[in-house]
């Protein structure tokens, strides 16, 4: 599992690349993507803090080394992007357990990456929680492209089974409703 796989939003965009483009006008994807917009709104606060920091640096030679700081700013930007969409997994008198939609969609993208002939695209997840019953029901909406010439129903069924195993193993709840839409074919 490459670390890069865990650094993408549900729409497939890399958090690191969104951060790198914070100074640029929004891309056409970003203009239509609620996930990118929410992540950017969170990261904007860090951008402002780092700009102010650079200015105050001129008067403060003792602050940490730039390279070290660049890494910690990147880690902070990723954390903030992940805070932009969260789902409640469980709520008890001992406290709530929440998970970022990004962590969940990464697990699903990872499951899809293991199936030959499938490219995952946009993934959105909804959760219906019943606090009193202590139950959580997920609805996973995943759009994919499949390789031309493959048996689509069998491949999609294989992906569904993979997701149905990956979510309980990785998260600890059932995958719930898994809606997979084949929206495109790609040439191999």
């Amino acid at each position: 599992m490459a670390l890069e796989d865990t650094r993408r939003l549900g729409c497939g965009r890399s958090i690191d690349q969104i951060w790198a483009g914070m100074d640029q006008p929004p891309t056409s994807h970003e203009e239509d993507c609620e996930l990118c917009q929410a992540a950017k709104a969170r990261m904007q606060k860090i951008k402002e803090a780092t700009v102010a920091l650079r200015e105050s640096d001129l008067h403060n030679p003792e602050m940490t080394l730039p390279a070290e700081r660049t890494n910690s700013i990147m880690a902070l930007a990723r954390a903030e992007a992940r805070r932009s969409k969260r789902l409640v997994l469980r709520g008890t008198e001992y406290g709530t357990v929440e998970i970022s939609e990004q962590a969940l969609s990464s697990l699903i993208r990872l499951a899809a990456a293991a199936i030959p002939g499938i490219h995952s695209r946009r993934c959105r997840i909804e959760v219906q929680s019943d606090a009193e019953m202590g139950s959580t029901h997920l609805t996973i909406n995943l759009r994919v492209a499949t390789a031309s010439g493959i048996d689509i129903p069998a491949t999609v069924e294989g992906l569904r089974q993979k997701i149905n195993k990956a979510i309980p193993a990785g998260v600890g709840i059932d995958a719930g409703t898994v809606n997979i839409t084949v929206e495109d074919l790609y040439d191999v």
Partner: peptide, 29 residues
């Protein structure tokens, strides 16, 4: 996350304070 909740609450007990809710947010796996 549930194991973290349990352990943190237990250790709070050792300080003599009452353990209230321990909220855990899983940001990344």
């Amino acid at each position: 996350a549930e194991s973290v909740q349990e352990r943190v609450r237990e250790n709070i007990c050792h300080t003599g304070l009452n353990p209230g809710p321990v909220h855990v947010h899983i940001l990344t796996i």
